[in-house]
Design a protein around this nucleic acid. Structure first.
Lengths: 339, 339
DNA sequence: AACCTTGAAGAAAAGCTTTTCAGTCGGTGT
DNA sequence: ACACCGACTGAAAAGCTTTTCTTCAAGGTT
């Protein structure tokens, strides 16, 4: 690499200690000496070796974001919007952002968390898509490692998080459909191990029951949050003898896939079959037809998570420590009355 | 932090050297010894200190992406798609991705590049939105630092890059408008210091002239690539006595802003005024009306840049070293014949 | 004159790995 | 019996900062 502090010290005619202290702005170094060291550093083009510094201080100035997804990963607007929120906020606080992607529970995912906690990979991490019995959360918590999660879990302890009230959200959406006269309402669920899978399913089942509608197990299908899987699962639903007249997809990408399948069969979304999503990613307002969905401010949640993590790293306790947001039904043209 | 190699060595009853070599898979370590070291490491929960390793080896296993934008940054789908390409490809090769955002030519941007080249921040960087007389490229090149750029520049030396043929692209688009009967074609240009600003402007001016149309300086307006600025600049154009009948925006975000302004005045995009963009970000297919634009495969370009950088870090020379792609006009409903 | 305080600067340790080079030991070839 | 070799292993350096603790000189106090 290049110039080291030793050479700067030599050039300035002082010890390494003094050079270090001069450049770090300590006040027990004479003004004249500091000027001289600065001049030397400048003229030699000194750039501190980051790894040496980090090794010594144990701080990296970097936050980690480990994306739990295999197929679409960063291509999914959910992640890219959340990432945007984190990234922009991190920048505001002078932190870099380190990102990596691994499929849930994979070896690589384990390694990343291990490296973070034990290897000094980053100063703290942000978690997303929390799972039932989430080992990541337990692991981070038990090691007293700084983190913030987007999503609750079912642990007995408290940790800093932001989450949306999935159950209430889905509940509202089911009610929206019922109010439009639908009774054959299918539910395209997230992978079962995700924490919000249970909550959203509860919202679905309970609201159906509350309205005196018997819910049918074969109208609940599990997808993997991609457009492709929305398409596939909807094709299965459509090949049944009894078809639903409405579908609630648990994210917007799957809703897009559902619409693909519907339109492929020559039916009109919003008239023949109503479709709704979850998230309100930016593209949802522009689909054809525009998508009825549950709005949660992904970008802002990303920012909030990041801000909370920065506070934790500064030794403060974020206030509030846990936030629960209620998603809001945004009615667009993909849903309409039952015909 | 935690367990160090020293403790593992002690537990296994060997020297630090042997422990290190055993765990790193060197073959000059007896099988029995290796097993013993591995057992010790396992039982103690040893995790290597990344910073110590990096300090010693001078490698970080990380690629850097310094996003040159102030206002929208990661919120801009251009960046998030490009980032997705880089990120996914980096993951495939076992690299982490470090991202940070700075406004062009800011102090922070300078520092980031300095830290990369001199401080061992990352192993290599990917550049985007190259500029005229781009100091970043010169700096990296002269320091023989590994990098790949999305975009040409005007330097005398060769460096690894991928770029789209901006001039040809805009030229095609202008021709598209002229073929539709338009002659009052406005051009919403990128910030003048961007390399492709010149190329695209050349494409515009030259194709107008080739068709015997006098281009008007007041029909060329500069925006900053955001939707907001598209909106503002279009309002200026619309408040003129002579209004254009068609507008070429130099990215899709500005085109969205242009459409906002047009629709706000009760006019119909694609009939009263034709609008086109550049990039074909995913949302462009879903705008209202769907946007005519120039398609360049941003995601794939990101992947390619990343792959090239990984090759360079492996000591190979990417083949081809410089790639020029020709964007393709995608005609949708935001453009129509002059009425 | 002896002692203390203060401001400034340096020696050396610490942070943890990787790597170079030297050394040990049993065995083999002559 | 001697030299040498091969297979392993260990001591120590190197990588570069930051930080603790010590030292030193000058000036002030009693």
């Amino acid at each position: 690499m290049g110039i080291t502090l030793r050479e700067v010290a030599k050039e300035a005619g002082v010890s390494i200690t003094t050079a270090s202290r001069a450049l770090s702005g300590y006040d027990d170094v004479a003004d004249k000496t500091r000027k001289e060291v600065e001049r030397a550093a400048d003229s030699l083009g000194y750039i501190p070796n980051l790894m040496a510094r980090r090794l010594k201080t144990g701080r990296t100035g970097t936050l980690g974001f480990i994306i739990p997804d295999t197929s679409s990963r960063l291509g999914d607007p959910f992640f890219s919007n959340f990432l945007a929120g984190i990234g922009n906020e991190a920048g505001n606080h002078g932190f870099d952002l380190l990102i990596t992607t691994h499929s849930p529970d994979s070896r690589g995912e384990h390694e990343s968390y291990t490296r973070a906690v034990g290897g000094g990979w980053v100063d703290g991490v942000i978690l997303v898509r929390t799972r039932y019995d989430d080992w990541r959360i337990r692991y981070l918590y038990e090691n007293n490692y700084p983190f913030v999660a987007f999503g609750r879990s079912n642990h007995e302890f408290e940790y800093p998080l932001v989450d949306e009230d999935s159950k209430a959200g889905v509940s509202q959406m089911v009610q929206h459909f019922i109010d439009l006269g639908h009774r054959e309402i299918a539910f395209l669920a997230p992978p079962a191990n995700l924490m919000f899978a249970r909550l959203r399913r509860e919202g679905y089942v309970q609201t159906m029951q509350d309205n005196g509608i018997r819910w049918r197990p074969d109208f609940i299908r599990e997808g993997n949050m991609t457009r492709q899987s929305g398409y596939e699962q909807m094709n299965i639903l459509l090949s049944n003898r009894d078809r639903p007249t409405a579908v609630i997809a648990c994210n917007d990408m799957m809703a897009l896939g559902v619409m693909d399948a519907v339109q492929e069969r020559g039916m009109v979304v919003g008239r023949d079959i109503s479709v709704s999503g979850f998230d309100d990613v930016p593209v949802a307002a522009f689909t054809n037809p525009p998508l009825t969905t549950l709005r949660q401010p992904i970008y802002d949640i990303g920012r909030t998570c990041c801000r909370m993590l920065v506070e934790i790293l500064a030794g403060q306790k974020p206030e509030p420590y846990q936030t629960l947001l209620t998603p809001e039904v945004v009615v667009r043209e993909s849903t309409g009355p039952k015909i």
